[in-house]
Design a protein around this nucleic acid. Structure first.
Length: 273
DNA sequence: CGATTATGATTAA
DNA sequence: TAATCCTAATCGC
């Protein structure tokens, strides 16, 4: 689940369900007992996402920092709470909602300067209102690394993950191995605006949907799972039927359509007389 | 029931 | 690039 939209949605829902009233915190699994004790009985003042990083302010001077990594989950559980079945690192119990955190790659209390340090290493976050893509555009222009690798680099753009990068490059018709410097400004602007549009849809719905409802023939809310994506985990192109190809770029697999995303610069439109 | 897989990122080599 | 961490659902036998 966890690309940037998941973390922003989580921050919003934590605030909605826990904010304003004291929260009970515990670590049923036992690996965050000290941290949970420091939060226990405090009130959540603010939950905020920066890319895939979550920070919760309980007014203790130390922020709760959570990073879900690949397999982490932070989800609501039965309320009133029941004995956990699995490994729950942190349980937060509010008046009407219980949240269970499992499998995070980070769950820790950090001082303000450490939070600043983490945030300062991130590029603009397409889900933040104040995000300025100019710095990301400039950095792309100065590197020969494949565009598929730079899109996963959180210090360039914060929040894109392996599903969105594959879908974005498909939608923009860009081959994943193209040098970042060979992505035109217009193409970058298209990538950025599509990222904002799609991640907002993901934040609201809680799942990644990149396909066009008109193309699928039913509203986004009623699409079947297999109709929600263009290329990720698929083997034939939804648009042209060409067999998709999967390569390893930036250390992770990415799938593209050789026909809709030709290598090299985008083909010029054929000249007509 | 063991193996595999997963929308991530850091550290070591 | 590879190894490592974290957990649970799913798949094959």
């Amino acid at each position: 689940m966890p690309e940037g939209h998941t973390i922003h949605r989580l921050a919003r829902r934590l605030g909605e369900t826990l904010g304003g009233r004291p929260v009970s915190a515990s670590s049923p699994q036992g690996r965050f007992e000290g941290g949970a004790a420091a939060i226990d009985g405090r009130t959540l003042l603010r939950a905020e996402a920066w890319g895939k990083y979550l920070f919760c302010d309980f007014g203790t001077g130390m922020a709760l920092h959570v990073h879900l990594g690949l397999i982490g989950k932070f989800r609501t559980a039965a309320h009133p709470p029941e004995e956990p079945t699995g490994a729950i690192r942190l349980r937060l119990v509010g008046e009407g909602t219980t949240w269970d955190l499992s499998g995070p790659t980070r769950c820790e209390l950090v001082p303000p300067d450490e939070q600043d340090r983490i945030v300062s290493r991130l590029g603009p976050d397409p889900l933040r209102r104040d995000a300025d893509p100019a710095a990301a555009r400039d950095r792309l222009a100065r590197t020969e690394r494949p565009i598929a690798a730079t899109l996963l680099d959180q210090s360039i753009i914060a929040g894109i993950g392996n599903v969105y990068r594959a879908e974005l490059l498909f939608l923009c018709g860009i081959h994943p191995a193209r040098a970042s410097s060979a992505v035109s400004d217009d193409e970058f602007d298209a990538i950025w605006s599509e990222t904002v549009r799609l991640m907002r849809i993901g934040e609201r719905s809680g799942r990644i949907t990149t396909t066009d409802p008109a193309e699928i023939g039913r509203p986004r809310s009623r699409m079947r799972r297999e109709d929600r994506l263009y290329v990720y985990h698929r083997d034939h192109c939804r648009r042209c039927g060409t067999p998709l190809r999967t390569d390893r770029i930036g250390g992770r697999p990415i799938t593209h359509c050789p026909s809709c995303q030709p290598a090299g610069r985008r083909r010029r439109r054929a000249l007509s007389r």
